[in-house]
Each structure stands twice: as C-alpha cells, then as structure tokens.
Design a protein around this nucleic acid. Structure first.
Lengths: 332, 332
DNA sequence: CTGAAAGCGCTTACAG
DNA sequence: CTGAAAGCGCTTACAG
C-alpha cells in the first residue's frame, strides 16, 4: 500500500473542497444531497477511513472514554463494562480499557496512559481502592472522573453504585414472608463495606418483622476454613432454614455443605427431595453461571445498569454530588 | 484551566529546544543527563502530559491495539483480555476494547471504529463468528489481525487457541488411571467445534486404554432439559462413575443432580459421604468461582496465556500460518 | 548534542 | 452551499 487515502483524495475524487468533505463527514454544515452522494461514493471507492487522531488533534475533542478496572475477570465489573460499552458505542464513543490490579502505582500509570491518549473522561471500577491521587491528576487536566462501584464511602466524587442495603432488605423480607424465622448471613470479608451495607439491610428486614439480628448466625469469609465453618454453623443451629449468601462462591460452598449433611437446597418452585430443606438467597450477577441457570433466587445488583448510568452521566458531563444508587432486582 | 501545556512550554521552561524535549521524551537521541534532568523537572513543574494524538499523527505510528470481543462477561474472554492487557501494558501499548455481540454488522462497526482510531493491530475474540469481511477491511488498511480463541477452523489467519483435544485426552487418562472405566461426557452444544475437539480427545484417551466411546453416555446441552437429561442418564447408567463436564455450568447441573439422587461428588482428596461417589473433571477457567475454590478438578485452557501470546505475536508483527496451540493444564 | 522548520490529516473560522 | 488557508501538538530529517 502506498499512502493512506486522505480527505484531500476524497475531495479531489468527488470534485469538491476538503471543507465540504469534512463538513459532510461530521454532519455539521448543510451539504446538498447530491454532494453528499458524490462524497459517499468517493469514500466508498477509495476505501477512505477518517483519521481520528488528526480530527481529535485539530478539534481538541475526542470521543474517547477511558475505563480503569481492577480486574475484568470479576463478573460484576465485566457486566459494568458491558453496560458502559453499550452507551459509548451508541453515542459514537470508543473505550480505552486498562486494568490496574491492586497496585497504587499501576493505577496512576493507567490514568496517565489514558490522559496521554486524550480521553475526555474516565470511569473508575476499582472497588474500594483509594483514588485520591488519581483525582488530583485528573483535576489538573480537567478530565471528569466518575466511579462505578458496588459500594462506596467516597463523597467528593460523582459515583454510581448498588443499593446493597435495599437489596438485602428485600431479600430478607422475601424469606420472612415465605415463613422463615431463622435466617443466617454467609460470606463476605469482615472489612468489606458492601458486606456491612448488606448486613444493615438484613437487619432492617428482620427488625421490620420483629425478628432479631443474631451475630452467631453469621459467618464471614475466611478463605481456608469456610466449608468447615458452614458445616459447624448448620450443625450448631439446625433450625436455621434460610441463608443470605454474600456471593455465588459462598452459595456454592453452602450447597456443598448442605449436600454433604444430607439436606437439600430448596427454592420456592422446586420440589424438595430431603426433609430439611434450606432456602438460599444469593447476591450475584446474571453472568454467574449457575445463577443464570435459574436454580437459585438471587439479588441482581444490576451492574450493567450501573455501567450505563455511569457512562451516561459522564457523557452529559454533569457533576453530581449525591451518589446515584441503582435499585437492585430480586430474581425469583 | 487555560491552554494545555505543550512541548513548547516544556522547552521554554527547561531552556532547550522542542527537538531536545521530543527526543528526550521518546528516548531516541542521546541527550545529556543534565538536559534530561532539566526537562524532567520542567515536565513535573508544568504538569505536562504528552499529546499522543499529535505524536501518532506525525509519526504515523500508534502504540494502540484494538480488541473486539463477543462478550466480556464470558470468563474465558475476560481472562484472554487480562492476558492481552498484561503484555500491552508491559510494552507501552494501550488497548481499545469493543464488544460486538453476535451481530455481523456490529462486528464491522467495531472494526471500523478501531481503524479510525488508528490502531496498529486488532485481536479478535469472537468464538466461532465469521470474520471474512473483517479480514478484507483490515487487509485493505494493512492492519494485522490475529485471532484468540478456544477452537477454530479458520486457516488463512494467524490464530492462537486452546488444545481442546489434548486437554480432554489428559483428563480422560487421569480418570482412567484412577480406576474409572465408565466415563461420560456432559454439556456443550451439538454444533460446537470446541465440543467436537474435546470429544475427539476424550475418545483418544479411552482408546489408548482399550475402552470404547459410547455415544449414549454423552449428553449435549439443550437449555431447558439439561437437569432432567442428566438425571435420566444417571439412573439409566448407574455404573458411570466419572464425567467430563463441558463447562462449569454443566458441572453445577451435575452436582445438583447428583445431590438430588442422594449420591456424592468426589474428588481424589475429598472424603466421600455417600456410597456412590461420582468424580467430575470440568473444563473451565480459574476465574470461575467454585472451580477456584479448589473443590473440583478441572482443565485450565490457559486463556490468559492465549491472550499473552496473541498480543506478543501481534506486537512482533509476525505472520504465522499454523495455529499456535496453547497446552492446557490439569488442575488437580 | 541542539535548533529552526516542514508537515502529519484534519477542522474551522472566514470570505464568498 | 463551497473554497483557501491557518493551525492543533507533535516528530523528524537537516544543518549546525
């Protein structure tokens, strides 16, 4: 291939000026139908593809959004990104994706790299990672930043997040309405903000129906001991008939434990095959496979919707100081 | 903020020419330590961030790679992308990510959008989607294309993929060596190439040990009936003592079925709590939660490695006609 | 090792 | 509705 075809080639081929071609391309000036036809024909014939680098440089705008995610393999983030992508594509934007991992320095490198590319905004999917330095860098370049998260206590930034508390409350009430009186909460790390919010919602639901929150019916997630802990809990409190599970992994562990003890997991519309049926309500995303199989009730935190809203707000360039809280959906 | 700081500001501040700054930035000319110091100081003081759009435009190069993925929520793809990202970041490249879904037109739009941005190569993670048109477009712009996939029968493009056949064979032999003689294969769609390759490997393993492949011990994945089908199979052939499962979703369905029938799932090092223990070997990625919990043996197709290799080859710009086949790893 | 200057491909007032 | 021309911020021969 010789030289790339440029807007000049198109102009010459279509017998118009470059201005006209440029205007037609961006849909700005009012160009006659005939001219538009000629230009399109030329573009097609020449296989012309517009050089956005040049366009961006000249116009000072970019239609590029950066996303920094801690780990795309986390289904919650994967869904957020799908939502972001949906809106960006729809609005003619493209997405730079960088993965930060847990390192603070890597995080800053990601941001720097995105800013060098000229993104006009950055969406952060970092869980509970600290973003103070990031904000300073972005502010200096006056690049808007927005956080998409499960939970957060950051208050000086625009943020879209889940309503963990409401989700837990609704699930708890569902279980209570089905007749469960002894309900436990399994999983999640002790220091997780998300877990704390959910426990609050769990308590909300219990209190509303005159039930008490019992710390001893709660097991946090300590990697190696989990299964043994669950087993002990089930043996110690055989009358617990339902559990809220922090995530799909916890749900699986519970399933294995229950099956090991010769009891069965139940769901409203499923038939029980064992005497002591235990009902589960899990937190999770649709992307998680066995949840998607329609076998377990779960609270969908709507990560795609979180992504969509975050992208929307960023593109509108509105500064919002109170968090946008996305309502969870009970999938029953 | 007034005007963005440019290379000229840096040059003025550091009392050198723009050439010198540019050279120092890209590490090309031999610049004295003193000068480099002055420049770095100026960059720091001014908060200068290089405009890559301008650099790309002028140099005709880009350090941007495009990725088109069918669905990031698929853990296999998510891991591939993590691998790609690792190499790109390491080499100073950035990644545009677009999600195509299943639509052919969306696919072309993604490609077009990436080319407009000036990517210097595109990695395709599209499963078994057809990419002929894509190739034509990319070729015309002389942009290298590379496929990262689970399986593939495309032969005119550079491709990095899993060795499904070997993985299935190794898993089968493992089960046989543990004493299993009646082994089934569950899950996967009938028309899946990946499934076909695995069945071939499954048969390889069986034949090698003088066992026969029995089609009736095989259930393909038909969404609504799966659980019932598994149950029927287990009842009809109670002597099947082990299964290869096509994916983690299938594994879960099997677990539920087994638990429902009052049997137990076993793994070498696990204790069996029921008389009829069934052993499972699943295909999957580390990202899949319950597999990661170390509860089930699985074949890791090394998607991150597939991503790494794909990125590596693309950056080296080498055309490779025979597929790069990544060896799977048995996680036991 | 450094400086002056051309030009990458586009957009955008400005004048017609 | 269209054209000539300046300039976005950088890189890169070229000459010193």
């Amino acid at each position: 291939m010789a030289r790339k075809t440029t807007i000049h080639d198109v102009a010459k081929y279509a017998n118009v000026s470059v201005t006209t071609v440029s205007l037609a391309l961006s849909g700005k000036g009012r160009i006659s139908d005939v001219t538009t036809q000629k230009i399109n024909e030329a573009i097609h014939q020449l296989g012309y593809i517009r050089n956005k680098n040049a366009a961006n440089l000249r116009s000072g705008q970019s239609a590029m959004i950066g996303v920094i995610v801690k780990d795309i393999r986390d289904p919650f983030y994967a869904s957020i990104i799908t939502g972001i992508n949906e809106i960006l594509t729809q609005q003619g934007y493209v997405m730079f994706l960088t993965q930060s991992g847990n390192e603070q320095t890597a995080l800053l490198q990601c941001a720097n790299s995105l800013i060098e590319q000229g993104v006009s905004g950055i969406i952060l999917c970092l869980g509970e990672l600290i973003t103070d330095e990031l904000k300073i860098v972005a502010d200096r370049q006056s690049i808007p930043l927005i956080i998409a998260a499960q939970s957060s206590n950051i208050d000086n930034m625009t943020i879209v997040r889940s309503d963990n508390r409401l989700g837990a409350k609704l699930a708890t009430e569902y279980l209570i309405n089905k007749g469960h009186r002894q309900i436990g909460y399994l999983g999640g790390r002790m220091d997780s903000l998300t877990r704390a919010e959910r426990l609050a919602g769990f308590a909300d639901g219990l209190f509303k129906h005159g039930l008490k929150f019992k710390a001893e019916w709660t097991v946090s997630h300590e990697q190696p001991e989990e299964l043994a802990d669950f087993e002990q809990l089930l043996k110690l409190h055989p009358n617990i008939s339902a559990f809220l599970c922090h995530d799909s992994s916890t749900t699986l562990s519970l399933m294995l434990t229950v099956s090991k003890l010769g009891r069965a997991l139940g769901k409203g519309r499923m038939i029980s095959y064992f005497e002591h049926q235990i009902e589960v309500f899990s937190f999770g995303t649709q992307a998680e496979i066995y949840i998607a199989k329609n076998l377990i009730n779960y609270i969908d935190n709507q990560p795609m919707e979180i992504g969509r809203q975050a992208a929307d707000i960023l593109l509108q360039n509105t500064q919002i100081s109170t968090p946008i809280v996305i309502k969870p959906e009970l999938i029953i």
